[in-house]
Design a protein around this nucleic acid. Structure first.
Length: 620
DNA sequence: AGCACGCCGACT
DNA sequence: GTCGGCGTGCTC
């Protein structure tokens, strides 16, 4: 007996092993096999009769039966083709963690098969998918799930923080235990939860990304919470949005889908507009009093306009709490004389400036360097931070309110372990004012908050990223929804007439989606066309340039695409790194395949490497 | 001659 | 992704 196995490596090929006597394996099963002399974990994708002369032998099976049925394997193949991630890395990323040592199946093992190794649905009978918006969406979701009592359920959240709350809510509403597959739980628990689903001992699960393929019996309901959240396309392989996977899985296996979001992605809104997705808007919900502060000509030296400063003083005097929102953690460093913006010489994006550490760092390549004293361009000495990142805003607020206890909440300052401590200090009122990025709204309860100040969303509105408006809209809407009608929302902006600002503060969704869809249609952005970004990295500037030109020439020969010429990411003259943006139709991955496959297959044999990002969430 | 480093092919 | 073989070039 011979088995074909794929591994977590960036290669499309499978490796062939002989199955030793006493071991039984099936397609979809997880196994250990030697690769480059060391045992590694892979997935069996094929079995056939044969002697297997000269082949190495499988070492062991990990579970007694397959983890992935035919339908899930077909889905992983689809994900791999859509995302240009190898089939092996796709499969390995989407199966549960390894079992605890005691539960491992050694030699010999027996293939028991799973309770429901799902076959492909005979006819794709996925009921119409539903998009839930509105302030009461969670409650309406729970009602829908209660009506579907007895069906399987897989509820996917964008990050671990919300998994616990959802598990609790489901349990108290539906009255049955919910399997936890989110990465917030220990590995052995996640493995056991997956196995319980496999056996049919559980049929409801809450999870994060790695639970996308969890075995729920069809027809089940697949729920994607906060479908607009960029966290649904996290770093790492496979590079694909969970929304796309959930919709395709439902089609293949015959599940139904519910997407929820206060501010749906423009893609999903459009799907609903064109009838491919049902939309249920629910009630608009309570809204805060909103003040839009026109900060044109102001805000040079302080993140606090007089109106916001007064608002903070009054809120504190009445015993309320304050949340100040920034749109990014770090500021950039710019020359006050010539306007030169300090960028990473390799990557071309502005370097993040930390005044505390007196250093600049690159978000892409991780390069760190001491903050310079003089401008490399004009030799001027007026280098100053640009924009209100969390660090700089915090310093300014501490200066303005020296006797106030101020806390900062963002990915850089708060560790998963430190979050409960801050939450405690917020709950007991020892922290009266918190400055943070949008995650702060999920981490802290709004009960005693009476003021939210958005320092400014202008940075988002001016980014050369077609999704920036959507992100600004989502931030403002989330801030208002958090506060409800308990307080005041103050937005400082130099663009008070911008449709993103007007729609958000006016609690009027159509005011955002209508002009946004028009803009995207005119310029050929999603959902009207699909995007792909190629990043070309070379060891030498000349090689990188040559490879970028080659990619560009080859792509330009394909029909039905718009291919933009190679450009350094960001605005500075690059060298080692180039970026090519491609626009195409719904089948963009297939359109690109004849050109990309030979180039990707060369790997490091060429003058550089090419990375493919389909459907990018941010273009910066 | 001896070693460090970087490049490149191979992985069953 | 990761390992190891091998060539270039520098040092003792």
């Amino acid at each position: 007996m011979i088995a074909e196995v794929i591994f977590d490596i960036p290669l499309e090929r499978a490796f062939t092993y002989v199955v030793p006597p006493g071991l039984t394996v099936a397609v979809g099963q997880r196994v250990r096999a030697p690769l480059q002399g060391k045992p590694r974990v892979g997935i069996v994708i094929g079995c056939r009769e044969g002697a297997g002369d000269g082949l190495k032998a499988l070492e062991a099976t990990v579970e007694p039966g397959p983890l992935l049925g035919p339908a899930q394997l077909a889905l992983t193949r689809w994900i791999s083709k859509e995302s240009y991630s190898s089939w092996g890395s796709t499969c390995v990323a989407l199966v549960p963690p390894l079992p605890p040592r005691a539960e491992r199946v050694g030699l010999p093992g027996s293939a028991t098969g799973s309770a429901h190794a799902h076959e492909l649905a005979a006819s794709a009978v996925s009921e119409k998918a539903l998009l839930l918006t509105g302030a009461d969406r969670d409650e309406r979701l729970l009602s829908l799930l209660a009506e579907a009592e007895g069906r399987g359920l897989l509820l996917l959240v964008p990050e671990i923080g919300t998994a616990e709350a959802w598990a609790g809510r489901l349990q108290s509403r539906l009255g049955q235990p919910v399997a936890r597959l989110d990465s917030g739980r220990p590995e052995h628990e996640r493995w056991r939860a997956w196995m319980a689903l496999e056996r049919g001992a559980a049929r409801r699960a809450v999870g994060t990304r790695s639970a996308l393929l969890a075995p729920v019996p069809p027809p089940a309901t697949l729920v994607l919470i906060d479908e607009h959240d960029p966290a649904h396309k996290p770093p790492g392989h496979p590079r694909i949005h969970s929304r796309a996977v959930v919709l395709e899985r439902a089609r293949l296996e015959g599940h139904s889908v519910i997407l929820t979001s206060p501010t749906p992605s423009v893609e999903s809104w459009w799907q609903a507009d064109s009838g491919r997705l049902g939309r249920s808007d629910g009630s608009p919900g309570p809204w805060p009093a909103v003040t839009v502060v026109d900060s044109r000509g102001a805000l040079r030296g302080s993140p606090l306009s007089p109106a916001l400063r007064r608002g903070i003083e009054q809120t504190l005097a009445r015993g309320g709490q304050v949340c100040l929102l920034v749109t990014r953690i770090a500021s950039a460093l710019a020359c006050g004389e010539c306007g030169f913006l300090l960028r990473c010489p390799d990557c071309g994006i502005p370097l993040a400036y930390s005044r505390v550490r007196r250093e600049c760092s690159c978000r892409l390549c991780g390069r760190r360097e001491r903050a310079p004293d003089t401008c490399a361009h004009c030799l001027g000495r007026q280098l100053a931070p640009l924009g209100w990142g969390a660090e700089r805003a915090e310093q300014a607020v501490r200066q303005a309110f020296p006797r106030l206890t101020v806390a900062r909440y963002d990915a850089e300052t708060v560790t998963p372990a430190g979050a409960p401590r801050l939450r405690q200090r917020w709950d007991d009122g020892s922290v009266r004012l918190v400055i943070g990025t949008r995650q702060v709204l999920k981490a802290l309860p709004p009960a005693r908050a009476r003021l939210v100040g958005v320092i400014t969303p202008d940075h988002l509105l001016r980014l050369p990223d077609f999704r920036a408006g959507e992100r600004a809209f989502a931030l403002l809407w989330a801030a208002a929804e958090w506060l409800k009608d308990r307080g005041r929302l103050i937005v400082q902006t130099q663009h008070p007439e911008h449709y993103v600002i007007r729609a958000a503060v006016g609690q009027e969704q159509a005011g955002f989606y209508k002009p946004e869809l028009r803009f995207r249609a005119e310029l050929g952005y999603p959902p009207f066309r699909r995007l792909c970004v190629l990043t070309i990295k070379g060891r030498h500037a000349s090689g990188a340039r040559a490879l970028a030109d080659e990619c560009w020439r080859e792509l330009a020969r394909l029909d039905g695409l718009s291919v933009y010429p190679p450009a350094p990411p960001g605005r500075s003259a690059g060298g080692l790194r180039w970026r090519i943006v491609v626009k195409g139709g719904n089948d963009l991955p297939e359109q690109l395949r004849p050109v990309l496959t030979p180039i990707l297959d060369r790997r490091r044999a060429g003058p550089g490497v090419v990375e493919v990002e389909m459907d990018p969430v941010e273009l910066i």
